[in-house]
Design a protein around this nucleic acid. Structure first.
Lengths: 116, 116
DNA sequence: TTAGAATACCTTGCAACACAAGGTACTGAA
DNA sequence: TTCAGTACCTTGTGTTGCAAGGTATTCTAA
């Protein structure tokens, strides 16, 4: 219907992609979670992620040593794979915090320039 | 050498990617520029872009109707292709502004959650 | 006890896209 | 006329998000 949707939606998706790993680490820094709950928490702040994205991503982060996991029984279905952040993951998260701040500052600077 | 570099650099790149189109539109909203000067302006705020990225991207944005261009002689070399933002481009930019704000708010929310 | 729904995990194949590398063309100076 | 500087552009590669499809477990209701 709307012509705009394509371009804008595409770009919003693009923006989200950039912060996927970062936001997962942020969430896990707060406490252990399993895939579905991570997806939910991200949806709560309007960062949409698909299952097909998050599973490979968690596996990748595990391989890189940023995360670990443990199995835990659930009263409501099959067992859950709870991911937790490692010390190394926290180190990296600190750097990502800095990277995000730098990017946000950069955008802010350009934005103000375009007002002047 | 450093083990960290890969992961972090990779992620910084990833973050930058998400805002490439957005920051180009922001820059052009401020005034007409040619490819090399856009790259320079982005570098000034630590958003690194390669030539091989920016040329196809500008062509894409032109095709989408967000940009136009004109040729202009230079006293210092070959003619330059100055890009300018269209009215439609400005409309889209407004939406991207909103998208960026939303994303930044989302990240901020998760971040504060991890402090609590 | 079996059929279905709900929840959770995972994989495959495709498409988008940033970027390194390599290439063309114009200008001016040595 | 050769070289350096500037500007443009294209090709090939690798990464990666995601839609779609698949498996396994649990609980409920017929």
């Amino acid at each position: 219907m709307e012509i705009n949707t394509g371009i804008i939606e595409n770009n919003k998706t693009q923006m989200r992609r950039g912060v996927l790993e970062y936001s997962i680490l942020l969430i896990l820094a707060c406490g252990d979670e399993y895939a579905s709950s991570i997806i939910q928490k991200m949806k709560d702040v309007n960062i949409i992620v698909a299952e097909g994205t998050i599973y490979p991503l968690l596996i990748r982060l595990k391989k890189l040593g940023l995360l670990n996991y443990r199995w835990e029984e659930s009263t409501q279905g099959p067992p859950r794979k709870y991911y937790m952040i490692t010390d190394y993951g926290r180190e990296q998260l600190n750097e990502l915090d800095a990277a995000w701040d730098e990017l946000a500052r950069g955008i802010e600077t350009i934005r103000n320039g375009s007002k002047a």
